[in-house]
C-alpha cells in the first residue's frame, strides 16, 4: 500500500514535469533566436522565401498556438524533421538509442560492481594506504574532464600500446540486428567475432564514462558505511558476537546502499552528460554523437528533440530511483 501510494504520487508529478520540460525546449527554440526562420532559411533567402517558410512551419500564428501545436506534436511522438538527415528526428533518435544504452549500461554495471566494494573497503580500512589512494582517485574522478580522459585513454591504449580499437562501435557490419545491442545480438546469433569486436570497442568508452560515476559511488558508499559502522545497531551486533562478515556485508551494506541508491539519479546525470562528449571522442554512434553532429550542422530542431528525450529519460530514471528507495527503505512514510 505504502509503495503503491508512492508510485501514484510520483506518477502524478511526472506529467507536469514533462510538460514543463517541453515548455522550456519550446521557449529556447522559439523565442531566444531573434528570428528563427531567418536562421533556418540561411543568409541568402529572399524575404518571400522566409515568409513562405514562416507560414509552412506555423510561425505566423500567435505564440500560444505554436506552443499548443508543439505540445500536441511531441505528445504524438513528432519531434519534427532534421534539417541535416532529412528524416523524422524521433526515428533518428530511436535508431541511435541502443548504442547509448549499451554504453551507459556497461558504465553503470562497471562503476557499481567496482565502486561499491571499494567504498566498503575504504571505510573498513579507513586512513589506510588503500583509503588514501582511493580518496585521491575519487577526488580526481570528479575533477577530470571526461573528454580529456577519453583522449588520454586513446593516446595510451589505442595509439601507443595498440591493445584496444581507437574509436567506433564495431569492426565490419556487426551482428544481425535483433535488439540493436551488439553484445546481446552477437550472443543471440552466436557471432563470436562480432562479440569480441563489440566488446573490445566498448572498453575505453566504458572506462571513461564509468570513472566519475565510480568516484561518486565510492564516496557515497564509504560515507554510508562509516555512518553505519559508528551506529548503535552495529555496536549491538558486535556486542552480540555476530560474525563481522555478516555485520559488514549484510547489516551495514544494506544501510549504506540506501544512501548510495538515492545518488543513482546523480550518477545517471553524470553518465548522460558524459555520454555526449565521450561519444564525440570515440565516434560512438549514439544519441550523444547525434547531438554533437546536430550542433555542428546547426540542426537545432534535432538538438531540442535530443534535449527532450534525454530529459524525459532522466526524469523517468529519477522516478524509478524514488520508488526503489521507497521500497528498500522501510522508514519512508507515504
Amino acid at each position: 500500500m505504502r509503495v503503491l501510494a508512492l508510485i501514484i504520487n510520483r506518477m502524478l508529478w511526472l506529467v507536469p514535469t514533462l510538460v514543463g520540460l517541453m515548455v522550456i525546449t519550446f521557449t529556447i527554440s522559439h523565442i531566444i533566436p531573434a528570428d528563427p526562420i531567418a536562421f533556418f532559411a540561411g543568409e541568402n533567402a529572399t524575404p518571400e522565401q522566409i515568409e513562405a517558410l514562416r507560414v509552412r512551419y506555423g510561425f505566423d500564428k500567435p505564440l500560444y498556438i505554436q506552443l499548443m501545436n508543439y505540445l500536441i506534436g511531441v505528445t504524438n511522438g513528432d519531434l519534427g524533421i532534421s534539417i541535416y538527415t532529412q528524416r523524422p528526428i524521433s526515428e533518428d533518435l530511436l535508431s541511435r538509442l541502443p548504442a547509448t544504452m549499451e554504453l551507459t549500461f556497461m558504465a553503470v554495471f562497471f562503476s557499481t560492481l567496482v565502486g561499491i566494494p571499494l567504498g566498503v573497503f575504504a571505510a573498513i580500512y579507513r586512513n589506510s594506504f588503500l583509503d588514501h589512494f582511493l580518496r585521491i582517485l575519487t577526488v580526481s574522478g570528479l575533477a577530470i574532464a571526461s573528454f580529456w580522459l577519453a583522449i588520454l585513454f586513446q593516446l595510451l591504449f589505442a595509439m601507443e600500446l595498440q591493445i584496444t580499437p581507437l574509436q567506433g562501435r564495431i569492426d565490419g557490419w556487426g551482428p544481425e540486428k535483433i535488439t540493436g545491442f551488439f553484445i546481446l545480438d552477437s550472443l543471440l546469433v552466436a557471432d563470436w567475432e562480432s562479440l569480441q569486436s563489440a566488446f573490445s570497442h566498448l572498453i575505453l568508452p566504458t572506462l571513461t564514462l564509468a570513472f566519475p560515476a565510480m568516484a561518486t559511488i565510492v564516496r557515497f558508499t564509504r560515507a554510508g558505511v562509516l555512518d553505519a559502522i559508528n551506529s548503535n545497531y552495529v555496536l549491538y551486533e558486535q556486542a552480540m558476537g555476530l560474525p563481522s562478515k555478516v555485520i559488514i556485508w549484510k547489516y551495514v551494506l544494506r544501510n549504506a546502499l540506501i544512501g548510495t541508491v538515492t545518488q543513482i539519479g546523480l550518477i545517471f546525470g553524470i553518465l548522460i552528460a558524459g555520454a555526449v562528449v565521450v561519444e564525440a571522442v570515440f565516434d560512438w554512434p549514439g544519441l550523444g554523437l547525434y547531438a554533437v553532429e546536430a550542433i555542428m550542422n546547426s540542426d537545432y530542431n534535432a538538438i531540442m528533440g535530443f534535449t527532450l528525450v534525454t530529459g524525459a529519460f532522466f526524469i523517468i530514471v529519477n522516478l524509478i530511483v524514488d520508488i526503489l528507495h521507497g521500497i528498500i527503505d522501510p522508514r519512508t512514510q507515504d
Binding site: I28, S29, I32, I272, A273, V276, I295, S298, I303, G311
Partner: peptide, 16 residues
C-alpha cells in the same frame, strides 16, 4: 533540476 545541466546548456548555447 530534472534535466542534466549540460543538456540544457547545450540547447541554449547552440541556439544563441
Amino acid at each position: 533540476l530534472a534535466v542534466p545541466q549540460i543538456i540544457l546548456a547545450i540547447a541554449i548555447a547552440q541556439t544563441l
